[in-house]
Amino acid sequence: MAKQIEVTDVDAYYGSHKAIEGINMTIDARAVTAFIGPSGCGKSTFLRTLNRMHEVIPGARVEGKIRMEEQDLYGSDVDPVSVRRTIGMVFQRPNPFPTMSIYDNVAAGLRLNHRYSKSQLDTIVEDSLKGANLWNEVKDRLNKPGSGLSGGQQQRLCIARAIAVQPQVLLMDEPCSALDPISTLAIEDLISKLKQEFTIVIVTHNMQQAARVSDKTAFFNLAAQGQPGKLIEMDETTKIFTSPTQKATEDYITGRFG
């Protein structure tokens, strides 16, 4: 239920602009990997290359190799649609489908793939909402629109929607940046719980958050505005936050820039 990801020499472009360059890393299974770095360093772009969401933007493309357990995600016979089905994503701003009920939001991904019986769907929706620590709050109003929930609840609904299709990997792009501290805490608790089952990658601006939730941390930086972002160093989170090997990493986490 969780897979490791191997990244080799990945570059990503927006048209002719190179946004990230030469990324190599291994993302461990059943662990939380955090990406940190200043704005514009390409960490979100890199995250989106992992499930081929990057190429959705017109003119955007990716070079290099990304493998999930021996399978090349960018292989010529691989359909990006099935990659995204296998590697789920949670976005910066909660984005439930406004015209669908809470129930239908969670079931949305399932309904794309198979025909499930009503009772099967009920079970998966309940399990997913429980998995996202949301079940108790919404079990009485599953048929109400998802947009009626608070921001934090909406974000957990989006997480429930993503885990309902049983992905191998869960990508989170600053999932708490639009939320208040209490909702943030709820999501962080959830992340710690989800890593039992999923490989999790999280982009965050909040270094305390990275320190709290992640097992490994990768620091991205760019030499100057307009230059491509690069991976500066990646290591155990405790190591990155106590004794980083690179000067730039230390400057960043001690708040000297960024």
Binding site: M1, M68, E69, Q71, L73, V78, D79, V81, S82, V83, R85, T86, L112, N113, I124, D127, Q166, Q168
Partner: peptide
């Protein structure tokens, strides 16, 4: 829910 999820599945021909 199947216990073992296969590798990246191809999407169904119908879809």
């Amino acid at each position: 829910m199947s216990a073992v999820t296969p590798e990246i599945q191809r999407i169904s021909g119908m879809r």
